[in-house]
Simulated assay, not measured.
Amino acid sequence: MEPTVHPFSELFAQLGLPNDAAGIRGFIASHAPLPEDVRLEEAPFWSPAQAQLLREERIEDADWAIVVDQLNLALRAPT
């Protein structure tokens, strides 16, 4: 069975964030760069529920882990 590929926008929807292109760009621009010593799910801008979702998806669901890793990389890139 082929793994499901989730678009970036679906992760943002799961997190309860604007998930259109402008909303995603705005979120990343306002929170990047995330310091290297801060784990993605421990960033101060997440609610407890969002942090838990990121933690669980990264550990438990390989399909979502890819997109969570993409978010991690996007937030670490200099703006």
Rank of each mutant, 00 (worst) to 15 (best):
L11P: 13
P7A: 04
F27C: 06
P35V: 01
R58I: 04
M1K: 10
L34H: 02
H6R: 13
P3V: 10
L71A: 02
I24L: 09
H31L: 00
L71Q: 03
A62R: 14
F8E: 14
Q14H: 12
R25F: 05
L54W: 07
E10S: 15
I59N: 08
D61E: 10
F27N: 03
A43I: 00
A74S: 06
D37P: 00
E60H: 06
N72A: 08
P18R: 14
I59G: 01
D37K: 06
V68E: 06
L17C: 14
P18T: 06
I28Y: 02
E56V: 08
L17Q: 14
L75T: 00
E42G: 01
P78M: 11
Q52I: 04
F27T: 05
S30H: 08
H31F: 00
G16R: 07
D20A: 11
S47P: 10
P44F: 00
A74I: 04
A62W: 13
S9N: 11
H6S: 07
W64D: 04
L15H: 09
T4E: 15
E42D: 14
A32W: 00
L15P: 09
E57T: 13
Q70C: 09
S47L: 13
A21W: 09
D61S: 11
P7C: 06
L34R: 01
L40A: 01
L15D: 08
F12V: 07
A21N: 12
Q14E: 15
W46G: 04
I66K: 12
E41D: 12
Q52R: 14
E36H: 00
A43D: 03
E60T: 04
E57R: 15
I66S: 06
F12W: 08
P18E: 08
P44M: 00
A77I: 10
I66D: 12
R58V: 03
D61G: 05
A62M: 14
Q50W: 03
L54Q: 03
P7E: 06
S47R: 12
W46K: 03
Q70V: 09
A29T: 02
N19K: 08
P78R: 14
Q52T: 10
A65N: 04
P18I: 03
D69I: 01
D63G: 13
F45Y: 12
A49P: 02
P3T: 13
F27V: 06
N72K: 03
P7H: 05
L15R: 10
L73W: 08
F8Q: 15
E41T: 02
F45E: 03
V5R: 11
L11K: 10
H31T: 00
E10W: 11
I66Q: 11
L34F: 04
L17Y: 09
P78D: 15
W46M: 03
W64K: 14
I59M: 09
G26T: 03
I28G: 03
E57H: 12
E36W: 01
F12H: 07
H31V: 00
R39Y: 02
P44Q: 00
Q70P: 02
S47T: 15
N72L: 01
V38R: 07
L53F: 12
L53Q: 07
A49R: 11
P3D: 14
S30A: 15
G16S: 10
L11S: 10
L54T: 06
P35A: 01
L40F: 02
D63P: 05
G16V: 12
G23C: 12
V68S: 04
L40N: 01
A49H: 09
F8P: 11
A32S: 13
E41G: 00
P3C: 09
